[in-house]
């Protein structure tokens, strides 16, 4: 039995289709990432799973419990961290934690082993009001509160958004450790670079799942050679590459340009020659392994 089983979920808000037939199956103990930009449907899907929103059609089950008929059971076995900070700002760190432990009929002591790693970081500030914590610390406290009743499934909606790079990295280290506890973690993020930290991911855009697999497998499926080009002036290089061959994909990546040719007879030398002939200054042309963001862009191209 899958820990999370999602079948053909559709959700509309007026005219807008937020989820357009989403199906996913997540195994027990998996660290599963839902990767997509703002407005892709991530929050709607998560709210349906935690029984806070009803789907128009389709079914979903958490540990075998239906999200509509067994909602009470689900609320007891799920830890949920919404995208917006939702703890009590006027309660202290410790009061928040005690509050959540109490409403789930447990104590901080009972499940201390699960939250110890985070709690030692929070402890020096246990008398500080939650509203006065930094972004990274707020997220850690929210995670603590979502874990305090030792849930079977953890649903985390963009836990690292707005958090700086150092705190983000620490947060992911924590998530990885829950696998050993048998907890299933379903986490969403708009950061493509966090995809690699998950065991499996789903790429979501406009309410559609574009692809699902392990990050390595999704990268392996990239169908054509991908080149990175560093040349200047940037704007002219972009225009030049767009008219090189049949319907190429040309994506700006920082100071470099990623180029996917639809023909197989293109080579590093041919690209270099083509740009040099146009009087552009070429610093680098290299074939590279795609990243998740390249895969996301490739999938978006089709829609």
């Amino acid at each position: 039995m899958a820990a999370i089983d999602i079948q053909n979920i559709v959700k509309t808000y007026g005219e807008k289709k937020a989820l357009n037939g989403v199906s996913l199956s997540i195994e027990k103990g998996e660290l599963f990432g839902l990767i997509g930009p703002d407005g892709a449907g991530k929050t709607s899907l998560m709210r349906i799973l935690v029984t806070l929103l009803l789907a128009d059609s389709g079914t979903a089950a958490m540990s075998g419990h239906d999200v509509v008929t067994d909602y009470k059971t689900i609320r007891n076995i799920t830890g949920y961290m919404p995208g917006r900070f939702s703890l009590y700002q006027d309660l202290t760190v410790e009061e928040n934690l005690n509050f959540f432990a109490t409403i789930f009929g447990t104590t901080i002591k009972e499940n201390y082993s699960l939250i110890r790693d985070i709690y030692v970081q929070l402890e020096p500030f246990k008398d500080r009001r939650a509203g006065k914590l930094s972004g990274g610390m707020k997220q850690k406290l929210a995670l603590c509160c979502a874990l305090i009743h030792r849930p079977e499934i953890l649903i985390l909606d963009e836990p690292t958004t707005g958090v700086d790079a150092v705190s983000r990295r620490e947060f992911w280290e924590l998530l990885k450790s829950y696998k050993n506890e048998g907890i299933t973690t379903f986490v969403s993020t708009p950061y493509m670079d966090e995809a690699g930290l998950c065991e499996r991911i789903a790429l979501i855009q406009d309410g559609h799942i574009m692809d699902t697999d392990s990050p390595d497998e999704i990268i392996r499926r990239f169908p054509l050679p991908l080149y990175t080009v560093k040349a200047s002036p940037m704007t002219e290089v972009l225009h030049a590459l767009r008219s090189f061959g049949q319907a190429p994909q040309v994506w700006i990546f920082g100071q470099e340009i990623h180029f996917v040719a639809s023909e197989h007879d293109i080579s590093e030398d041919k690209i270099r020659q083509y740009l040099t002939d146009k009087n552009l200054k070429v610093d680098k042309v290299e074939i590279i392994t795609p990243g998740i963001e390249d895969c996301f862009l490739w999938n978006m191209r089709k829609s």
């Binding site: 703002d38 708009p190 002036p233 940037m234 972009l238 994506w251 963001e293 996301f296 862009l297 978006m300």
Partner: peptide, 21 residues
């Protein structure tokens, strides 16, 4: 461009490059 989809983000940065140029 935080949270913006990867395709739009690229179109946006291209606009920025053109503006800077």
């Amino acid at each position: 461009t935080g949270g913006v989809d990867p395709m739009t983000r690229r179109q946006f940065w291209e606009m920025i490059h053109e503006t800077a140029a």
